[in-house]
Design a protein around this nucleic acid. Structure first.
Lengths: 204, 204
DNA sequence: ACATTTTTTTACTCATGCGTCAATAAAATA
DNA sequence: TATTTTATTGACGCATGAGTAAAAAAATGT
């Protein structure tokens, strides 16, 4: 019998754990070197198995990329859902959305796989991911607009502003990993402050 | 004789012109699809020649990428040099540097080739380009520091701030090309405004 | 028109890397 | 221990795409 499921992981669990681990490794390398520049042999070797073993867990290289990207897009979705259920003004919600989004991205770390690679996927998968990004963007714009009406934000260009932020965020990880002197919380707080308040000194 | 060099281009000139044109096309496609995902056959076909013709102008694919990236880094360098010879406070210089940098990038348009691809180059070339970027970053940080001392900027974290801007800028092109409703001047002005003043309304 | 040089093409070689298949190893079950 | 299921491997097929060599074409000069 040997398994009344205390600390011991079940068959399915082990399989899922290995899958996740492989996904993380792949995501990290895709990030560092780019999707096309990374061979499955490389990923496999890093994990400590053979390329063929990967095919036991993933249909093909494309699917591996697809799932990596999904990890990233889930961060946006999670942040959005949490923000929607957050009680406060549009301004508060916006601040929360951005802060949380950045934190999640940094926690997921290696999972961030640059959007550029999205074109390597089949049309259908592309559409899906782009649509998810659009949802985040739309929500972000909506909050900005509302916050302007509230008087919390000055009347900026909504589209440019949203893009400005989402674009800047994409780089957070690239240079955050380089020096881990700061915690995700610190980094995202700094970031949000810059975005909200700019850098010029307030005239007396 | 047929060529006392009025409107007619010389041998060398034609060659250089073709080279530049090819470079532009390559840069654009590298941008859209990524370096590794782009075949030289594709680039050649887009130009209207055969792959082999490219080898008459460029040593190999790597060199093509190298020169594409150089076009981009030249924007940073040019902006920096112009800013250095610009008369005004550190704050003015900083504003000029950023504005000019964005404009040059947008003018060069297709020439922007994402930094991620840099890893495809041999060590030596990488070092050179990274060093050039570092120069821009260093200059930017120096100006920020000075501007803080001047009292023009609030005491922000210099490193994060510089990275914040340079990161955000990298995305300007990706979404600017998508809708060309705005001129480079307008876009960069908006951008600079957001960066300098943030988005929150000034309390009465 | 003829010779020479510059440019481009056609037709290849060769390495890399995705994906498959049959064979094995490991683990669970009986 | 024997048997079945799950996990992994080694050895391959095959397509793609970088790079080359030699020949053709176009431009230039005499």
């Amino acid at each position: 019998m040997a398994n009344w499921n205390g600390a011991v992981a079940s068959r399915e669990e082990v399989r899922e754990l290995k899958r996740r681990a492989a996904l993380r490794v792949a995501a990290r390398i895709f990030n560092e070197k780019g999707y096309h520049a990374t061979s499955l042999d490389e990923v496999a070797e890093e994990i400590g198995v053979t390329k063929t073993a990967l095919y036991y867990y993933f249909k093909n290289k494309e699917q591996l990329l697809y799932e990596c990207l999904k990890l990233t897009y889930n961060c946006g979705q999670t942040a959005r859902l949490e923000a929607e259920g957050f009680d406060g003004s549009a301004f508060d919600k916006l601040s929360f959305l951005y802060k949380r989004f950045m934190e999640l991205l940094m926690e997921e770390r290696g999972a961030y796989t640059t959007m550029a690679n999205i074109r390597a996927l089949p049309e259908e998968a592309q559409e899906e991911l782009i649509d998810r990004r659009r949802q985040l963007d739309r929500y972000s714009r909506m909050l900005i607009e509302k916050a302007i009406q509230e008087g919390a934000l000055r009347p900026v260009d909504v589209r440019i502003t949203s893009n400005f932020f989402l674009g800047a965020v994409n780089w957070i990880l690239r240079w955050h990993t380089e020096d881990d002197a700061m915690s995700p919380d610190e980094v995202s707080a700094h970031f949000l402050d810059l975005f909200m308040n700019g850098i010029v000194a307030k005239k007396a």
